[in-house]
Design a protein around this nucleic acid. Structure first.
Length: 578
RNA sequence: CGGGGUGUGGCGCAGUCUGGUAGCGCGCCAGUUUUGGGUACUGGAUGUCGUAGGUUCGAAUCCUAUCACCCCGACCA
């Protein structure tokens, strides 16, 4: 392709409304443009990279025995009502009506549709396992799309679904997919971790996330260098506080103290000249409309995944949706502005984190404006409905497997695999007879990869001050030829010849035939991140040489004109086979 | 949804406080110049100042409403 005709609107300056590096560079380098909030158009280079990503995934899915299909973007409400998710999915689901007022959704995921296909057309266990996948545009009306391609409302996902007769078969399918995922993310050249994860709304009880390590990642991963165990912090198992309250401790009488404008834990610590570990914070949650208070040590954060699990397993409180109470709700429920909530005198259940259990004479909000209590003790001043582990692991926490401290790193979730069990096959009645003649719902797994997110994640992990540095596998073109003096006929001819030769050899090559100064060409070539550059200038040509530059390292080599073609082809081949 | 911020030629911004002829840099067009890390110069085109109301002799500027985008939080296979 000639740069004189390629539509690549590059910009010198960072766009004003982009924050993270991948968003800035993909805009600047002319890969994407925003069409609406969280909705992007892919320009020619961007679309080529997307298709590269799709192709690698496709190859590995096929190799794993999955078969490509294409399910519809628009899905009838009936299927979602059958699975129960029409109500449960909430406002993330884009909904619309057809001309007859029938309800539809733009698919955020395809468990319902694929299960519908499976129940009609998988007739016997002898056909199993069946693994289907697709490349699909997904729609999720995210409350907060951000960071360009990282979290959009419309994005491309590869989603795969496996059907097996029993758990053993499903777990085998899961293992096959997991191995395929490892190959895929290696081929993209990612530094990544497969981590244990919470299964969230999609259900099931076995799940791994594939996290590309990057500081801008939205997820926090706890990993143990000792045991090799790694998990999303929401899921990471830590050594729990087991200490009980010292039976000999003197439980003082609580005392109300006026604490004007003392709202945050930091304020409280300043005011009382104490450490956050001596303060108990009280958070008000709403579980399906019902208030619940949670007491945590001042330096800890609530893990709502754990809270939800506890409520479901150990209380009568139903908890399809769990959210932190709004400022207004908190105000009503505690009869005090936010910042003064405490467990004393609340008329709804109070659940206490295990690490509060050994604490005595601690400080809490008094549920009264500008007031805190000191010397509060559980059992004496309030009665918890239970103690349980509710906290998010944090630096200093110990891995439950090795007894060594966790390391914490940030990650971008680019893939997520789930063993689903029969959640959907049961709801949609996708059952088969086994060898024993008994009818049972099939066992399912689902496996996602964020295709467009991978493009962003790759830029996050591979860039420098001059722009993007694509790994060969994702680069829209492998090599760019830069004739440095367009007025010099020898230079132009040499560039044209090499361009033709490389094209003939099947190479994905760009020729910067624009009548621009060398500096402009260098800047653009660096910005758009083509892995290999061939600079052809009058200077080198006198000695029969051209320059070969590797974008990633910046290394420049003089190569004889008659060897450059083979050199380029060899480098590309080596990079792709890595 | 709560909090904060920003909307001014294609892009990046100043001007708004204190109302009085809409500016700068980049880009674009024409030309000269230069030619291996975003050349220099000359000339030129491009704006209902996000939108709608209001106040005023007069509004980018003040007031009200509304929309869009960005950030933090809530949320999130």
């Amino acid at each position: 392709m000639r740069l004189s005709t390629l539509f690549v609107p590059t910009r010198k300056e960072d766009p004003a409304d982009a924050e993270v590096i991948s968003h800035k560079l993909l805009l600047r380098a002319g890969y994407i443009r925003m069409t609406a909030r969280g909705v992007y158009s892919f320009l020619p280079l961007g679309w080529r990279s997307v298709r590269k990503v799709e192709q690698i995934i496709r190859e590995e899915m096929d190799r794993a025995g999955a078969q490509e299909v294409r399910m519809p973007t628009m899905q009838p409400a009936e299927l979602w009502q059958e699975s129960g998710r029409w109500a449960a999915y909430g406002s993330d689901l884009f909904r619309f009506k057809d001309r007859k007022s029938a309800d539809f959704a733009l698919g955020p995921t395809h468990e319902e549709v694929v299960t519908d296909i499976a129940r009609h057309d998988i007739a016997s266990y002898k056909q199993l396992p069946v693994m289907l996948y697709q490349m699909q545009t997904k729609f999720r009306d995210e409350p907060r799309p951000r960071f360009g391609l990282m979290r959009g409302r419309e994005f491309i996902m590869k989603d795969a679904y496996s059907f097996d007769l029993d758990e053993a078969g499903a777990k085998k399918s899961y293992a096959i997919m997991r191995a395929a995922y490892e190959r895929i993310f290696s081929r993209f050249g990612f530094e990544y971790r497969a981590v244990e994860a919470d299964t969230g709304n999609i259900g099931g009880d076995l799940s791994h996330e594939f996290q590309v390590l990057a500081e801008t990642g939205e997820d926090l991963i706890a990993s143990c260098p000792e045991s090799g165990y790694a998990a999303n912090v929401e899921k990471a198992e830590i050594v729990l506080e087991t200490a009980d309250r010292d039976p000999g401790a003197e439980l003082l009488d609580k005392e109300m103290i006026e604490t004007p404008k003392v709202r945050t834990i930091a304020d409280v610590c300043d005011f009382f000249e104490c450490s956050p570990t001596e303060v108990v914070k009280t958070l008000i949650f709403i579980a399906d409309g019902q208030p619940v208070a949670v007491c945590m040590r001042g330096d800890h954060t609530v893990n709502d995944v754990k809270l939800k699990a506890y409520l479901e397993e150990h209380t009568e409180i139903s908890c399809n949706e769990l959210e932190l109470a709004s400022e207004e709700e908190t105000g009503k429920l505690t009869k005090a502005p936010v910042g003064f909530a405490g467990p004393v005198g609340l008329e709804f259940p109070v659940i206490v984190d295990l690490s509060v259990k050994p604490m005595v004479n601690f400080i809490v909000g008094a549920n009264k404006k500008n007031m805190h209590f000191k010397n509060v003790n559980w059992g004496k001043d309030f009665t918890p409905v239970g103690f349980t582990d509710l906290r998010m692991p944090q630096p200093g926490d110990i891995c439950a497997r090795s007894g060594k401290p966790y390391e914490f790193v940030r990650g971008i979730e680019v893939g997520h695999i789930f063993y689903l069990g029969n959640k959907y096959t049961k709801a949609l009645n996708a059952s088969l007879q086994g060898e024993d003649g008994k009818l049972k719902p099939m066992e399912m797994g689902c496996y996602g990869i964020g295709v467009t997110r991978i493009v962003a994640a790759s830029v996050e992990q591979n860039h420098d001050d001059n722009g993007i540095i694509w790994p060969m596998a994702i680069a829209p073109y492998h090599v760019v030829i830069l004739p440095l003096q367009m007025k010099n006929e020898d230079v132009v001819k040499c560039a044209e010849d090499l361009y033709a030769e490389l094209q003939a050899a099947g190479c994905e090559v760009l020729l910067d035939d624009r009548d621009l100064r060398a500096g402009n060409k260098f800047k653009d070539a660096d910005l758009i991140g083509i892995p290999l550059h061939v600079n052809i200038g009058s200077r080198g040509l006198k000695g029969g040489n051209v320059e070969f530059k590797v974008r990633a390292t910046g290394e420049v080599e003089e190569i004889a004109l008659d060897q450059i073609k083979d050199h380029v082809l060899g480098q590309i081949k080596a990079a792709l086979n890595k």
